[in-house]
Structures are given as C-alpha cells and as structure tokens.
C-alpha cells in the first residue's frame, strides 16, 4: 500500500471515529442540547444591550455622508487626442473624521456627432472609476483631486463636458470617537 493511501486511510479512520462519537453524544443528549440552544436564543433575543457599548457603536457610525461634497469636476483630455485620461475635482470634507481611499465613480455620455456624416454613438451612458487619491482628506479641508481614469474603451468617445461623479471613500472611524484627527 502506498504511503498517501495509508495516510488517507488513517485520517479517514480517525475522522470516522470522531464523527461516530459526536453523533452518539448528540443523540444521547438531544433534549439537553436543544434546551441549551433554546435558552441561548432566548437570551440573545431578549437581553438588553450594554448601553455603554451601544453608545460607542452609535458614535462610530455617526458620519454624515452629505458633508463630503465634490465640485469643479472636469474631465482632462490627453493632448492631441480626444481620449479622456483623467478627472480633476475639488473634494470638501466638512465632517469630523478624516477620509481616505478616495476615488470617483463617474458617469459619462458620448460626444454628439459633429457632422451629418458622423455615426450616431452606439452607447448612451457608461460608468468608469478613477484611480485612488493617496492620502487623507482632513476634516474642514478642501483638496484638489487629480485622478486617472481606468482604461475604458468608451473614454475615447466620451464628451469631457458630460461627466458626473460621486466621491467614494473610507472613513477613519477613530476620529469619530475622539472628535479630532
């Protein structure tokens, strides 16, 4: 018998014995186990929460997303081409916590045909994500973002004037506990 087969048989045997013992234990003590599970469920459902802990958790989730705003969104066209390669915008953070891993999720629309012979665009709206901003945006700060756009095929046909973006970010939640970064 080869070594892996022997090892497999041994492991299988040990697992089989353990399963046998477990099943036997469950069957022999089924009522007591059911009572334990039932009581744990009752306690979980009916126990009042620790008020101090709840207050801390509430503080950690108290972040007003509308306080982070974006303005002056401008698509940047690669010189000598019609390809939109980047996006710039001002991001303002009026909340109490720093934000990081900021990027923009944008919707773009195609250029209108310039001449009658130009073909109609085959798409209406496309979505694209920008690169990340490396750093924090501190509370009260207004930061100029200059981010690259992912190499999406639609970027060569997009109208730079018709980009709408929303900021995406993560929150440095510890600042919500201290109130300052």
């Amino acid at each position: 018998m080869s070594s892996p087969t022997m090892r497999g048989a041994l492991i299988g045997g040990v697992v089989g014995v353990l399963l046998h013992l477990l099943v036997r234990f469950i069957l022999h003590n089924f009522l007591w186990l059911a009572a334990t599970v039932g009581l744990i469920l009752i306690l979980g459902r009916c126990s009042p929460d620790n008020p101090k802990l709840e207050a801390k958790r509430a503080a950690l989730s108290r972040f007003d997303a509308t306080a982070v705003t974006l303005s002056n969104v401008q698509a940047e066209v690669m010189p000598g081409t019609r390809h939109v390669s980047g996006i710039s915008a001002l991001i303002s953070n009026r909340e109490r916590a720093r934000i990081y891993d900021v990027f923009l999720r944008c919707e773009m629309r195609p250029r209108a045909p310039q001449q009658a012979s130009d073909p109609e665009p085959v798409w209406d709206v496309a979505r694209v994500a920008s690169s990340y901003h490396y750093g924090y945006v501190n509370p009260g700060a207004v930061v100029m973002l200059r981010l690259r756009l992912d190499g999406d095929g639609y970027l060569s046909e997009a109208d730079p004037q018709r980009f709408t973006c929303t900021p995406q970010y993560k929150i440095e939640t510890v600042d919500l506990l201290t109130g300052q970064p």
Binding site: N50, P51, K52, L53, K56, R57, L60, T173, V174, D175, L177, T178
Partner: peptide, 13 residues
C-alpha cells in the same frame, strides 16, 4: 455592565 473597549477606542488613544 462591563466596560467593553472597542479596538477603535484603543486606537483613538
């Protein structure tokens, strides 16, 4: 109730 320290609380300090 026991005083439970969240990880974020320790980090905040």
């Amino acid at each position: 109730y026991p005083e439970v320290s969240l990880e974020a609380e320790v980090r905040a300090k």
